[in-house]
Amino acid sequence: MNITLSEDQRDCLQELINVAMGQASDKLARYLETFVHLDVPYIELVGSDTLPLLFAQKYNGSSVSVVSQGFYGNDGIRGESLLVYRRDNAKEVASLLGYEPEEANENEQLADISSILTTTFLNGLAELISNQMSYSAPRLISSLNTSLDSHLEQLSFNWELALKVDISYQVTDYSFNCDMILLIPGEAIQNIQSVLDRILEEY
């Protein structure tokens, strides 16, 4: 399936994502009681089969943690969100949550913060397009000593297209980067396109 976004659609989606990200950062800052700075996320629509290569280059064999979470909205908008952390970042990310050290292990904290990032952002996005999302539980699909590419290769069988959103979060006292990848099946991309067209018509 070959789907490309028109320039208007891309601009529209980018703006919606920026606004949703801004709202998410504000909420996160209040919850984490720290200032969250968010760079403008860069979005890109890629064939899911190119993902393993893209990420192999980016992470260059360093061990990563990946948390996956499914999302389901009205109008056939659905997909799977992946948050990818460099392993050496994962500890700091986890410590943001404010659990006592012995209260929750690192994997649990990583699943938690990922779910918070994903659902806060996607809830905001859903609201902007008058939609509503449900989520599956976050799942840690990769941790120490497993390679990201092999996981992505498995995933690319299930998804044709991926909306890659590069997010970089910086938090006072810490800075951490993570990638958010929204894997979206072809027909859901078409559904998103009609939503974008509807919004573009309004203005």
Partner: peptide, 27 residues
Amino acid sequence: LPEHWLKRKLQSVFTLNTPAFSSWEQR
């Protein structure tokens, strides 16, 4: 109940209006 932990989790639900999850694999 793990009170402090669960309260922190519930706070995220109340302040962020997002769902929270716990899996047997981690807890």
